[in-house]
Every structure is written in C-alpha cells, then in structure tokens.
C-alpha cells in the first residue's frame, strides 16, 4: 500500500511540475523535504523520550490496571455478552486503558490477546459482534494525552502544544460513540436479516 502511495505522490508531482513549470522548485523541495524531516525528528526526539520515560513510570505504578478498573463499567455497557470476570474482558479493559495512556506498544499485544480470547472455541472465520465492536474501538483513537501530536506541534513552534486537548477529547469521544452506534445498529440489522 505504502509503495503505491509513495510512488504515486512522487510521480504525480513530477508530472504536475512539468505542467506548472515548477521544475526548479520540485528539485529544491526534495532536498528541503529531507532536511525538514530530519529537523522534525531531531526536534521531536527529546520530548518523545521524556514522554516515553514518564509513561513507563506510569506503567510501572500499575496505572494501567487502575484505569482498567475505572473504565470497566463503560466497557460492560459496550460488551454486554462478555462476562466481566472473563479473561477476554480483562484483556479488553487493559487494552483500552493502555490506549488511554498512549502506551501503543503495550496496547497492541493486549488487544491481540483479547481477540484470541474472543475467538476461543471457535473455528469460524466470521467476526462476532464483540470482535467487531472491539476492533472498531481500536480503530478510533482514545488518548488522554495526545503526546505525539503535541510534541510535533511543539517542535514546529507552537506556543501551547497541548491547548488542543479538549477538542481532541470531544472529537474522539463523539467519533467513537458514533462508530459504536453504527456498529451496534448494523449488528441488529444483521440479526433481523438472519431471522427472516
């Protein structure tokens, strides 16, 4: 996929530059782009390390488990058919709280384990309602602190990189809610079709 996007962007800009006559700018932009990228990476590196370090401390304090407990009532609303004491439920809530803390490296393996638990005792290749809802939750971003974006804004000269935080919260919660609503609705539609 990326091979296609990468090649397409470069070929499209060469073709476009021929038509607009901006060939000089084009070759200049290749060098500028490389410099921009490295500059961005260097400017971001300090803050990225700082956040990773702090989040590691949060993980070590078992904040993930605490958050998981806090959010389990919400989660049982979304997954009424998964018992709260099950391994799958525990893994799902750990995945959600790791996502909330922005611990991507921890969230993914937990999420995959949760999927395996949800799949257990079944050889079918059809996704269950719970699997669909869980994956929809993971395709939406739920982060308490959008550290990467804030770091990038800071690196590019923002005065207050975190001032977007409330907007990010509102927009991700609304998006997640709508995604799950559509998913639930289509589950019911599917079931009615099945019964007919």
């Amino acid at each position: 996929m990326l091979s296609f996007i990468f090649t397409f962007m470069i070929v499209a800009s060469i073709v476009c530059a021929m038509f607009t006559g901006k060939t000089e700018e084009l070759s200049q932009s290749m060098m500028d782009g490389c410099a921009d990228a490295v500059e961005l990476l260097i400017m971001m590196s300090g803050m990225m390390c700082l956040w990773s370090g702090v989040m590691e401390v949060a993980k070590e304090c078992r904040l993930t488990e605490k958050l998981a407990k806090l959010f389990s009532p919400v989660l049982s609303l979304i997954f009424p058919d998964i018992p709260k004491s099950s391994k799958a439920f525990e893994l799902m809530s750990m995945n959600v709280s790791a996502n909330l803390l922005g611990l991507g490296n921890a969230a993914t393996p937990l999420g995959l384990q949760a999927m395996r638990e949800l799949k257990r005792d079944s050889v079918s290749d059809v996704a269950t309602d719970a699997m669909v809802n869980f994956v929809v939750m993971n395709t939406a971003s739920i982060q308490l602190l959008p550290t990467t974006i804030a770091t990038m804004r800071g690196a590019l000269g923002s005065k207050s990189p975190f001032d977007i935080i409330f907007c990010v919260w509102i927009s991700s919660v609304v998006a997640l809610f709508m995604g799950l609503l559509v998913s639930k609705f289509l589950c019911i539609v599917g079931r009615i079709k099945w019964n007919l």
Binding site: K119, V126, M131, V135, A140, L176, S183
Partner: peptide, 21 residues
C-alpha cells in the same frame, strides 16, 4: 487485529470504523 485470529469475514467493521473517522 483480524489477521491475528484468522477472521476473514469482518462484516460491518470497516463501515463503522470509517464512519467514526
């Protein structure tokens, strides 16, 4: 996520996820 558990029929996952985006 679906690849890890060899699920091929993902039903309405993509629709719901893109609505969210």
């Amino acid at each position: 996520y679906f690849g890890a558990v060899k699920i091929k029929k993902i039903r309405h996952t993509l629709v719901a996820a893109l609505v969210a985006d």
